[in-house]
Each structure stands twice: as C-alpha cells, then as structure tokens.
C-alpha cells in the first residue's frame, strides 16, 4: 500500500516535470496541464527545505486537505471557486479547473490605476469592490474563513460582459471552517491590510467593499465589531524594543 502510494506520487511528480510552471506563488508551484482532456492547473505544495521535515509534512498535509475541503464547501454553496478534478495527498498536488483568460484582482486594480487618473480609476473599480464584498459575505455565511485574503488570491475572468463581473476565489490553503465572528473579523482585517498596502490610496474602495459586505450579510454586525476590535488591538500594541 505504502509502496503503491509512493509510486503513484512519483508518477505525479514525474508528470509535472514535463509541464510548464505557470507561477511560483506564495507557497506552491502552479503548472498548466491537461487532465483527461480538460485544461487544468496543478498546484503543487513542494517540500520547503528551509523548515523541519516534520513541520513541513504537517503543514502541507493540512493545507492540501483544507484547500480541497473549503473549495468544495464553497462550490456547494454556489460561490465561484475552481472545480477540483483530482488530488494526490502524498505529493500534495491538486488538479483543478484552469480559470482561463483571467487576471488577478491585484493586477486588474494596478492596471486600472495606471490607465486612468486616480479618481476615475476608483470610480471604475467600485463595482468590483462591491462584488468582492458580496462574495466574501456569502463565503462567511457558509462559515468558510479563507485565511489568506489578498487581491492575488482573487481572479477576474477577462472575456466577459463587463457588467457581469466574473470573480473567482482561489488559494484556500489557510482556510478553515468556523462560525466565530472573531475568525471572520480577522479574515477581513488581513484583507484590509493587504489591500491597502498593495493598493495605496484606496481607502474609499475598501470602504465600498465593507459596505457591500454588510449589506449582503445577515450576520455581519458581530463580524464588523470584531474587525474594529482587532484594528484597535493593532494600534494599541506596545512596540517596545
């Protein structure tokens, strides 16, 4: 059994060797490959040599499992995430739907800001911010806490009717299932910091995102309260030394 597993996973990595690395993300390598005729991407959590092998194993195991679990949970609720085709838990590889013709929300915001003057760029981005707020509210409604919300972990399909924003959430490796407002508040706090530091002078845009989050969710008020608390903790933290 152990031997079979090993052979299978060696087959997977052997297969990946021939494929093209699309991106080296925050913790994984993403390849473009075909899976049973469907265009797909393979996300491989390769072993990180800087950390202790026991810790490395533990993290990759847990993250691969959580990513698949929470993607499925979101898809069941109609929240747009890539379809999962195949998982190899031994080599920590997830084969999933390739969101073709997409850009990260990060790149989309940056290119909009490059193309237009600041105020008109913000104007153009408001519908997207509102859409992100809506989708996150829906995700939290399902008790999925993403754990790594950044604009790099949201894709936008390009070839669609501009009014119909095709937003897709990805990268659920740090996700968990939790009903606690504290966890959801921290989720938004992490996004807020990543958002504002990546995209300078977009405070108004992030406010639109939050407004839309609140408007789309029945359970938002304890979450926003926790968000305020976590923000305050950040500002009050002692910084001695």
């Amino acid at each position: 059994m152990e031997v079979n597993k090993k052979e299978e996973s060696m087959a997977v990595s052997g297969f990946l060797l021939k494929e093209r690395v699309l991106r080296q993300g925050a913790e994984a390598r993403v390849y473009r490959a075909s899976f049973l005729g469907r265009s797909s991407v393979v996300k491989e959590r390769f072993s990180k040599k800087y950390r202790h092998p026991v810790l490395d194993r533990r993290l990759s195991d847990r993250r691969t499992l959580q990513e698949v679990r929470c993607i499925l949970r979101c898809r069941r609720a109609g929240i747009p995430t890539p379809a999962v085709y195949f998982v190899d838990y031994t080599s920590h590889c997830i084969f999933m739907e390739d969101i073709v013709d997409s850009v990260t929300v990060r790149d989309h915001i940056a290119s909009t800001q490059r193309r237009s003057d600041p105020s008109s760029a913000l104007e153009q981005l408001v519908p997207l911010a509102a859409k992100v707020g809506r989708v996150l509210a829906q995700m939290h409604q399902e008790d999925v806490v993403h754990g790594d919300l950044t604009t790099s972990n949201m894709l936008l399909r390009k070839s669609q009717d501009p009014a119909e924003l095709g937003l897709v959430l990805i990268d659920f490796g740090l996700s968990s299932v939790s009903a606690l407002p504290e966890d959801k508040g921290v989720d938004l706090y992490v996004l807020e910091k990543a958002f504002l530091s990546t995209h300078p002078n977009t405070e108004r845009l992030f406010q639109e995102l939050l407004n839309s989050y609140v408007a789309s969710s029945k359970k938002s008020s304890p979450v926003i309260k926790k968000l305020d608390e976590v923000r305050l903790r950040g500002r009050k933290r002692s910084m001695v030394g």
Binding site: H52, R58, K193, A194
Partner: peptide, 13 residues
Amino acid sequence: QYVELPYTVKGMD
C-alpha cells in the same frame, strides 16, 4: 529533538 508547537499564520500576519 523537534517538539511540535502551535503554528499560526494568517495570510501575511
């Protein structure tokens, strides 16, 4: 000997 400890990363925090 490596003793397992809690490990908490939330995004970039």
